[in-house]
Write a protein that binds this DNA or RNA. Structure first.
Length: 346
DNA sequence: TACGCGTGGTA
DNA sequence: TTACCAAGCGT
């Protein structure tokens, strides 16, 4: 280990500042692999606060990996709706089935085997091995990248510097309590060594931190600039049946919002649609609403115009007809919940 | 390797 | 308002 005292200081800090999180075991206990896996997948690029309620609902509805494997995919997507990155939900379901079919319902305990399961990458494999199986796996997420890049004042920009940071983390990770160490480093990054205005006065290893000693710690990690997001435009068709039900369709399995339900609409292009009604599901009197919807995805902004139309009997071949008060029962992502909200004037 | 992939909170 | 960021993964 590069700094023998480092891990002890981190663990001591963790023992005194331990956060109680729904998926976290009591001190001295080891969390069960299913809970760790479920929480870690939900936490990929997603905040602790957002995940907490979803995690509780999933665990209550599907208490074991067998329960989740037997659930219909659509039920999983519905519970996941609003959490984003929907490939995670599809891979979660697939992974559960593989654990049942290939591993007799027992999660493998080593990184290499975990890494073969869908939705489990380097980070999640190491996290499960360390947290659920007490294996000395080197865990590196965005928090730990930041902590380590500051500890060593790494000037190489991310993401190119990740392999080097991983070597540093591997060197730092202790043989004893590796799961607690990983969670401690992530908590440290989330609570003390924050992206902006880190509170170095509360940090257990500030004395060893090169960024803290020699420079402005906020300068790290150095990152390469990201390209700015373009804006795309489209229109959606809010088609209401006489009984108030609205037409939804299932999106393709792959790609953006894959497998989720949508309000039918035009394609999204770099300029506003000139003849949107050509793409409407039916030829009828469409009324353009004043309200529009703006939504930002990972790599572009989207602006949708809304057209409203009415029919007497809705043809089931057009898609699924469902009243807006029941959108919670189907897999409607946030974008189209925003559309519903705009139609009703917020 | 670089990009596609959601959403909500924060400054 | 805009930009950035959060317990990354798949291709």
């Amino acid at each position: 280990m590069t700094h023998p005292a480092h891990a002890d200081q981190i663990l001591a800090w963790y023992d005194h500042n331990r956060r109680r999180l729904p998926w976290r075991a009591e001190p001295g206990e080891i969390a069960d692999p299913y809970s760790v896996w479920l929480s870690e997948v939900m936490l990929q690029q997603t905040t602790v606060q957002t995940v907490a309620d979803y995690y509780r609902r999933f665990l209550a509805r599907w208490p074991t990996v067998q329960d989740l494997a037997q659930a219909p995919l659509d039920a999983v997507l519905t519970e996941w709706a609003g959490l984003g990155y929907y490939a995670r939900a599809r891979n979660l379901h697939k992974c559960a089935a593989m654990v049942v079919a290939r591993h007799r319902g027992v999660f493998p305990s080593n990184e290499a085997a975990l890494r073969l399961l869908p939705g489990i990458g380097d980070y999640t494999a190491a996290a499960i091995a360390a947290i659920a199986f007490d294996r000395p796996a080197a865990v590196m997420d965005g928090n730990i990248e930041r902590v380590v890049s500051r500890l060593f004042a790494v000037e190489d920009p991310l993401p190119a510097a990740k392999p080097r940071l991983k070597i540093l983390v591997t060197d730092l990770t202790p043989q004893a309590r590796p799961g607690d160490y990983a969670q401690a480093m992530m908590d440290l990054g989330a609570m003390v060594c924050t992206p902006r205005r880190p509170t170095c006065g509360l940090c257990p290893v500030s004395g060893a931190c090169i960024a803290r000693i020699s420079d402005d710690p906020e300068r790290f990690p150095v990152k390469t600039a990201k390209p700015d997001k373009p804006t795309r435009y489209g229109a959606v068709f809010w088609l209401v049946r006489k009984d108030g039900a609205v037409l939804l369709r299932r999106r393709e399995e792959k790609g953006l919002l894959g497998g989720m339900m949508e309000v039918p609409g035009t394609e999204w292009r770099d300029t506003p649609p000139t003849a949107p009604l050509a793409d409407a599901p039916l030829k009828l009197e469409w009324q353009k609403l004043d309200a529009s919807v703006r939504h930002t995805f990972t790599h572009f902004h989207l602006e949708l115009q809304i057209y409203r139309g009415a029919v007497g009997l809705g043809d089931p071949k057009l898609g699924t007809w469902i009243t807006p008060d029941r959108f919670g029962e189907v897999a409607v992502p946030t974008l189209f919940r925003k559309v519903a909200k705009a139609v009703f004037g917020k």
